[in-house]
C-alpha cells in the first residue's frame, strides 16, 4: 500500500517535470536569442563569450555522462525499500551515521526523499535521523561532490563538505530537541 502511495506521488511529479522541461526549453530559446543579438551588436565580446561557453561544454562532456551513469546505477541497485528497511531499525550513533551515509547515496531528487522520510517517521525512526537523512540527501550527494571538486577545487569542497556534515548533524539533534520540547 505504501509502495503504491509512493508511485502515485512519483507519477504526479512527472507531469510537473514535463512542464518544467517545456518552460526550460523556452527560457533556453530566449537566452540564446538574446545572446545572438548581443553578440551581433557587440562583436568585440564575441571571442571571450564563445570561448567560455565552449570550455564549459567540453567540461560537461568530460564528466556529466559518468556522473549520470553513477546515479542511474544507484537508483537501480539501491531501492527505496532497502533504504527504509535499514534506516527504520538503526539507532544511536550508528543510526546517525547510517542516516548520513544513506542520504549521501545518489538515489534521486529530493522530492522522493520526503515520502520516505514520512514513512520512516511513522515507523518510529528518530527525528534527528530523519532530518540528517533529508539534509544529506539534499546537499551532500556523492556525485555532486565530485563535480564540486572539479569546479571549485579540493580546498573549497573539503572545507564546505566537512562543515556541512557537522552542521547537519547538529541541526538534526537540535530539531529533535525542539520537537520534543514543543510536544510537552
Amino acid at each position: 500500500m505504501m509502495d503504491n502511495n509512493m508511485r502515485g506521488k512519483d507519477k504526479s511529479k512527472m507531469g510537473g517535470q514535463k512542464k518544467n522541461k517545456k518552460s526550460g526549453l523556452l527560457v533556453l530559446l530566449g537566452i540564446i536569442l538574446t545572446t545572438v543579438i548581443l553578440l551581433i551588436l557587440y562583436p568585440e565580446n564575441r571571442t571571450a563569450s564563445i570561448q567560455a561557453s565552449y570550455k564549459l561544454f567540453v567540461e560537461f562532456i568530460l564528466i556529466l555522462p559518468a556522473v549520470m551513469v553513477l546515479m542511474g546505477l544507484f537508483s537501480v541497485w539501491v531501492s527505496k525499500e532497502t533504504v527504509v528497511k535499514y534506516l527504520g531499525h538503526a539507532s544511536g550513533i550508528t543510526g546517525l551515521g547510517l542516516a548520513l551515509f544513506v542520504g549521501m547515496m545518489p538515489t534521486g531528487p529530493l522530492y522522493i526523499a520526503f515520502p520516505m522520510a514520512s514513512m520512516l517517521l511513522k515507523k518510529g525512526a528518530r527525528v534527528a535521523n530523519i532530518i540528517i537523512f533529508l539534509s544529506a540527501w539534499a546537499c551532500i550527494k556523492l556525485p555532486q561532490e565530485l563535480v564540486e571538486l572539479r569546479f571549485m577545487g579540493a580546498k573549497f569542497m573539503i572545507i564546505r563538505l566537512s562543515f556541512t556534515i557537522i552542521m547537519v548533524i547538529f541541526m538534526g539533534l537540535l530539531i529533535e530537541k525542539i520537537d520534543k520540547y514543543s510536544k510537552h
Partner: peptide, 25 residues
C-alpha cells in the same frame, strides 16, 4: 535512467552554457 536524467537536465545545461558565455563575455 542515466539517459532520461540527462535529457531532463538538457535545457538547464544549455541555459548555463549560454549564461556563462554571456557572463564572462
Amino acid at each position: 535512467v542515466a539517459l532520461k536524467g540527462t535529457l531532463n537536465m538538457a535545457p538547464s545545461i544549455g541555459i548555463i552554457l549560454v549564461l556563462v558565455g554571456l557572463l564572462l563575455g
